[in-house]
């Protein structure tokens, strides 16, 4: 169901992604994450196209944490911030974090040993149905993604929507 990958740049870090639909307690989850009771990034599933998008955001967040250059307060908030094409923090949380009435949630966990994730603790907190990560494209809202990342049709001629999104995420700090 979930997907765990090792980061090549930080071999002692693993990233696990989980996906839930029909979530009933988004507001509560959001509150818990903000209070630090959930150690994971809770992401609006409609804004994600591919697991690679979250790997890029997570890799960058760990890199910035290690170099002391994070823009937000925690690794998990930094992951959400890195998804955004702009440098506006509150807007990033609003668009890419979960909202009280969301019913699909994408969760990213970072851990240092392959099996040492806290999936069980996450599963016990989310009131919803876990679905395979491979089904994530069914939840993504490509029209909204195109609009938010300002991807034009001429750009999509030279690559996929995911390519355009990744480029903006990687380059936004020097624009």
């Amino acid at each position: 169901m979930h997907l765990t990958q090792q980061l090549e740049l930080f071999p002692d870090h693993f990233v696990t992604q989980l996906l839930f639909k029909d979530v009933k307690n988004a507001a509560e989850l959001k509150k818990k994450a903000m209070e630090g009771q959930i150690s994971g990034a809770l992401i609006n599933a409609s804004m994600v196209l591919d697991p690679f998008q979250l790997l890029v955001a997570t890799n960058k967040a760990i890199h910035l944490q290690k170099t002391g250059k994070m823009k937000t307060r925690s690794l998990y908030s930094e992951i959400i911030f890195n998804l955004s094409p702009t440098n506006n923090i509150s807007e990033a949380f609003k668009r890419f974090g979960i909202s009280d009435h969301d019913n699909a949630v994408h969760i990213v966990l970072v851990h240092t040993k392959e099996e040492d994730h806290n999936i069980d603790s996450i599963l016990s907190k989310v009131e919803g149905q876990q679905i395979p990560i491979s089904q994530m494209s069914m939840l993504s809202d490509t029209a909204k993604i195109r609009k938010l990342y300002k991807v034009t049709s001429q750009e999509e001629k030279c690559g996929s929507l995911l390519d355009s999104v990744i480029c903006r995420m990687a380059i936004k700090d020097v624009l």
Binding site: K60, E155, C158, D163, A170, V174
Partner: peptide, 21 residues
């Protein structure tokens, strides 16, 4: 990286940037 993004936005093929350190 800026030039790559500018080109891609105009529909000119250039490699995708994954990460900049």
């Amino acid at each position: 990286v800026r030039s790559i993004l500018r080109c891609r936005k105009a529909g000119i093929s250039a490699p995708v940037v994954y990460f900049v350190d």
